[in-house]
Amino acid sequence: MLKIGVLALQGAVQEHVKSLQAPDVETVVVKRMDQLEALDGLVFPGGESTTMRRLVDKYGFFEPLREFAAAGKPIFGTCAGLILMAEHIVSETEGHLQVMPIEVQRNAFGRQRESFETHLSVKDVGEDIDAVFIRAPLISAVDESVEVLSEFKGEIVAARRDHLLACSFHPELTEDTRFHQYFVQMVRESKETAPSHAAVT
């Protein structure tokens, strides 16, 4: 069985749990850092990034999450989760976990009244992906090692670098589970190719 966690400090956790369902997947709602060790993959959900960061610090998740990423275990961040992963945040002095070499701009599309839903083509995932953008960030710059998976009006809204996957929008708010199942496949492959990666740290 694959064990995939959803970081549950704040935000839309159950929606991810639902979208991750697969016959070989066991999902774990993660509230304490001692739950991380048993996981093969982890999701950073949407929510408020400033709130999540405060709780990450408060409960000692900061280094364990960075180690999780450094160990090569797959991580998928949506919206606020993407912000947590980014190395740089526009107009802020430093990023949060800084595990992915990208720059993000918060609330890039405007306030809630400018929030929207659309359909996107996402490389390797599919066409016509249902995408809900809520006070969404965008990826304003990427390192050359990062693969751009999707753009909306010329702006990057989904990207992957090796075992790290991130998007601006909320696939978890839709019935369309293709993006999550793409991540589940990443976790499967990661576990097959590096069965002992838990020992890396």
Binding site: A8, L9, Q10, G11, A12, V13, E15, G46, G47, E48, T51, C79, A80, Q112, R113, E114, S115, F116, E117, T118, H119, V132, F133, I134, R135, H170, L173, T174
Partner: peptide, 21 residues
């Protein structure tokens, strides 16, 4: 191509607030 103010966008905003104050 981009729909604003749909139920999903409006209710989704509240979903993101879950577990919060």
């Amino acid at each position: 191509m981009a729909d604003r103010g749909t139920d999903r966008v409006k209710r989704g905003m509240a979903e993101m607030q879950k577990g919060g104050v």
